[in-house]
Amino acid sequence: MAFWDYANPTRFLRLVQVVLPWLTGLCVLAFAAGFYMSFFVAPEDYQQGQTVRIMYIHVPAAWLSMMCYSIMAVSSLGTLVWKHPLADVSAKAAAPIGAAFTFMSLVTGSLWGKPMWGTYWVWDARLTSVLVLLIMYLGLMTLWRTMDDPIKAGKAAAILTLVGALNLPIIKFSVDWWNTLHQPASVMRMDGPTIHPDILWPLLVMAIAFTLLFFVLHLMAMRNEILRRRVRTLRLRAATSAHPRSATATAQPAE
């Protein structure tokens, strides 16, 4: 079945109904394995001690905060270039989830920073650019709320999302381009990870669990957004029937 077949919201909803229980089950299993490995298999770090266990949630949350925005950027291209009917549904549904992961990344990083760096916060390039990412998410969520027509809101948000995507390489390479208190990359490096496998494997399992959690929540939120647009369309139809001359709104593709 082609990608464009899922441009039909009804067909997409049927797919979600089939996929969601399996994805949820896999997510629960991955978290169970991840937590077990993080607390009972992974050793203490020789410098960080037990505090390294915060990394098993901080790092996946940080990765997901960027992955979520990348998905929103691709969805925005889908809205503006290919005019895929579910693209802005995907982008809108992803924003609150991305904001939550960014928030988790910032707060867990802060809680790790106090015992390790001696401070909760510094205005270095990595921390500041991730804070900008959180503000971008919140701004996009606000933009969607300010416009009543989801199609117009989707286009405006798509442009803003693509502009905001410039922040992604800044986040990634901030630790290389500037002197930061935040350490440089230790997993996604050209010369391979510098972390010992005993710590790396639990981290990767937790990253898989977080990724599955994202897709579960994203599919659920997309389903809700499609239902919301159906409600809106039906209310407009009811209003059109009651007052034919005053109704000017258009039906939405997600109908």
């Binding site: 037990q50 505090t51 266990r53 915060i54 949630i57 988790m104 790790w112 015992p115």
Partner: peptide
């Protein structure tokens, strides 16, 4: 969890609350 157990528990607790909040929202 050592001398910094409060920071570790707070981190996991906060993530749990955030994820539960997301699940409740959807």
């Amino acid at each position: 969890l050592g001398p910094h157990s409060g920071f570790i528990i707070a981190s996991y607790g906060l993530c749990l609350v955030t994820v539960l909040g997301l699940i409740a929202w959807v």
